[in-house]
């Protein structure tokens, strides 16, 4: 059986037993795009996302002995990645406090996205700017959410995970995920609609 034929759980179990880096590399490749996008969206910054991606798989390597057989790998991976992202966000906040005169990576990214929007040739520039502003408002509202709500929004709303999966990752009851998501969506919807009406 080649590595690509094995399930995530089989790859990790065999890696744990043999230390075969080829198996670990298969896991990294398998989740390269999906997990990077999750972290990219969570952190709003490409460099931070890459750092968190690497740190996540380093943790997978270090903690693979603790992985319970019978558990699924994907929620476990997302739990590690989410914790890495939470830590990264906290570090960025602290850095912002001590270097208020420097624009943050997220802000630099925002400028870059605006430039990309303006350079894009797919639609009318004014519409694109409006759309960008609307998104910036929603993103700002998103960034202002408490971490507990922010994580749920990232996992369920953007990453498309089931309530049950998000609950497993965040180690909270499904009901808590639902209530946090409902509160967060309510706030985001208010921002979106207020801005959407203004620009129409």
């Amino acid at each position: 059986m080649t590595p690509s034929d094995r399930t995530d759980e089989q790859l990790l179990a065999t890696y744990r037993r043999t230390g075969d880096r080829g198996l670990f590399a298969e896991l990294v490749h398998r989740y390269e795009r999906e997990l990077y996008n999750f972290l990219r969206r969570y952190l709003g910054d490409a460099t931070l996302a890459e750092d968190a991606f690497q740190a996540t798989f380093l943790q997978v390597h270090l903690k693979c002995e603790q992985f319970d057989e019978g558990r699924r790998f994907r929620p476990w991976l997302y739990a590690i990645a989410t914790n890495q992202a939470i830590d990264a966000r906290r570090r960025v906040r602290r850095q912002r406090m001590v270097s208020l005169d420097r624009s943050s990576p997220a802000e630099q990214d925002d400028v870059l996205r605006l430039v990309q929007v303006l350079e894009s040739s797919e639609e009318d520039p004014s519409e694109r700017i409006e759309r960008h502003e609307r998104n910036a408002q929603v993103n700002e509202a998103l960034a202002s959410l408490p971490e507990s709500m922010f994580s749920v929004v990232q996992l369920v709303y953007f990453q498309g995970l089931k309530y049950r999966e998000a609950a497993e990752i965040l180690e909270v009851p499904v009901g808590t995920v639902k209530s946090r998501l409902n509160s967060a969506i309510g706030k985001l919807t208010d921002v979106w609609n207020a801005n959407h009406i203004e620009t129409r």
Binding site: R21, F24, A25, V28, H29, E32, R33, Y36, N37, R40, R41, A46, E50, F53, Q54, F57, R113, Q116, V117, R131, N135, V138, Y157, F158, L188, T189, V191, W192
Partner: peptide
């Protein structure tokens, strides 16, 4: 709120998996 295309799936930076290994 509708998610923007820029937040959609994008290609990871080239060589990310290799750098991770």
């Amino acid at each position: 709120p509708k998610t923007e295309a820029t937040w959609g799936s994008e290609l990871p930076p080239p060589g990310l998996a290799e750098r991770t290994m």
